[in-house]
Amino acid sequence: MVENNRWVKFSSHLILLLGIAAVVFPIYIMVIATTHTGPALQRPPFPLLPGDQFFENMKLVLGEGLSTAGAPPVALMMFNSMVMALGITIGKIAISLLSAYAIVYFRFPFRMFFFWLIFITLMLPVEVRILPTYGVASSLNLLNSYVGLTLPLIASATATFLFRQFFLTIPDELLEAARMDGASPMRFFWDVVLPLSRTNIAALFVILFIYGWNQYLWPLLVTTDERYYTIVMGIQRMLNVSDTVPVWNAIMTTAMLGMIPPVIVVLLMQRLFVKGLVETEK
C-alpha cells in the first residue's frame, strides 16, 4: 500500500536526492579538478567551481604523461585498456557461447563432468588463483604482452553457465525443425541460436567490458613494461609517488578519461542490456 501523503512524497524524494548526491558529488569533484592547476588543488579550500585549465590538463595527460610517476601518456594506456577489455569480453563471449552450445546440444562422453568442471571454476576467481596463473603465464612467455593481459582471464564459468541456462529455454522443436530443414549443427548455431541470444550477448558484453576495463591486480602483475600499462593501474601509479606531491590535476583528468569508455558502452547497449536481463525473447 502506497500512501499518497505529502510528507511521504517529500521524504522519499529527499532520500532519493541524498542518494544521488552521494554518488554524484565525487564525480563532480573529479570533473572540477580536471579544470584547475595542481597547486590550486593542493591549497585549501578545494575549488567547487570550474577553472580554465581543462585543455592544458588534457594535453598533459594525453600527450606527455607523467614521467616522474612512471606513467606513459594516457592515450597509450587507454589503448591498452581497450585492447584488454575488448579482448576479454569478446574472448569470453565466444568461448562461453561455444562451450555452452556443446554442453547443451551434443552428447559426448563426460559431458556433465565437463559441465561441473566449468561450474566449479566459479568458485575460483582470478584473485584466488593469481599466483599459479602468473606462473603459467610467465613460463609461456606471456608477460608484457596483450595475450598475457587477456588470455588468462578469458575462460568464464559465469558466462558459460548463463548461456547454458538460456539455451535450455530454446524449445527442442526449433532444433528439430532445423534438422528437418537440413541445417548442420554449426548452421543451427549461427542461424538460430546466435540471433536468439542477441540480448543476452549484449547484456554480457556490458558486464564483461566493465569487468575487463576495471582489471587491476592482473595487469599489475603481468606487465612491467610501461608500453603495456593499463589506465586503471596507471592512475594508481600516479598516486604512488615518493618524495613529491601527487599531481592531482593530472590524476583526476586521467580518472575522468578512464571512466568514459564504460559509460559509452553502457549508453550504447542499455536498451538491449535491460532487455537481456529482464526478458527472454521467445
Binding site: 526449433l174 525443425a177 525473447e281 521467445k282
Partner: peptide, 9 residues
C-alpha cells in the same frame, strides 16, 4: 510441430 517451431527471429 504441435507448437509450430517457427524461428522467432
Amino acid at each position: 510441430f504441435q507448437n509450430y517451431a517457427l524461428y522467432p527471429h
